[in-house]
């Protein structure tokens, strides 16, 4: 136990707290997946028609970008723990960069849709069948909430980067960046389910 209590910091407790928070996050998205499941079951054909409007290759590219960012996140912690601070800083920066690229791609996807008059409550969208209105409603809310999480993750990682530069996070005391990493991976995890459910409907 003594190794988990460091400089007045209880790392085991910190991790437990983080995981409890992650469980609430899973349940938050779980509620939305429940709504999605019912709407899709009731409007299968219209969900399929609406999903044709999304570019699955852009979606797949974004998936790979986010998965790669999870790798760089994990590597940054492994490097820090091995005492290679400079390389950890590089991987942390790369993670932030990949996160920004993901959001950039999302921005272009959303603006393309909005440019075609497809956004919540738009006259163009309201002319579509009910199932398609529900699909795009869920699309904007779920990818939007996910996007907010990516943005929050980027902000947290910028603070971790600054803390590592200031040596407030070191290879002896790294639980904060570990917990930030857990959050980042969770955001990746949620996207792993969002991607097939919105882009890959046949």
């Amino acid at each position: 136990m003594k190794d988990t209590v460091l400089a007045g910091r209880d790392t085991a407790g910190a991790k437990l707290g983080m995981w409890l928070f992650l469980f609430t996050e899973i349940l938050l998205f779980g509620g939305m997946f429940l709504l999605y499941a019912v709407d899709r079951a009731k409007h299968a054909a219209e969900f399929h028609a609406a999903a044709e409007g999304l570019n699955r290759f852009v979606g797949a590219a974004n998936t790979i970008i986010l998965l790669t960012s999870s790798l760089t996140m994990a590597l940054s912690i492994a490097e820090l723990r091995s005492g290679r601070r400079e390389r950890s800083l590089m991987f942390q920066s790369l993670t932030i960069l990949f996160g920004c690229i993901f959001l950039g791609v999302k921005y272009f996807e959303w603006t393309a849709k909005i440019g075609h008059g497809i956004f919540p409550d738009s006259p163009e969208l309201m002319k579509l069948p009910k199932g398609q209105i529900l699909f795009y409603g869920l699309y904007f809310v779920m990818t939007g909430l996910h996007g907010v999480h990516v943005l929050a993750g980027i902000v947290v990682l910028v603070f971790m980067l600054i803390s590592t530069i200031n040596r407030r996070i070191t290879h002896h005391d790294y639980v904060r960046i570990e917990n930030s990493g857990l959050y980042w991976h969770l955001v990746d995890l949620i996207w792993i389910f969002l991607f097939p459910l919105f882009y890959l409907i046949t």
Binding site: S70, M73, A74, H185, L186, D188, L189, I192, P196
Partner: peptide, 19 residues
Amino acid sequence: AALLIAAVKSFFVLRIFMH
């Protein structure tokens, strides 16, 4: 199939990336 693949992916993210 899509959900099964997503579940397998999640398993690896949880076990390895999330330690």
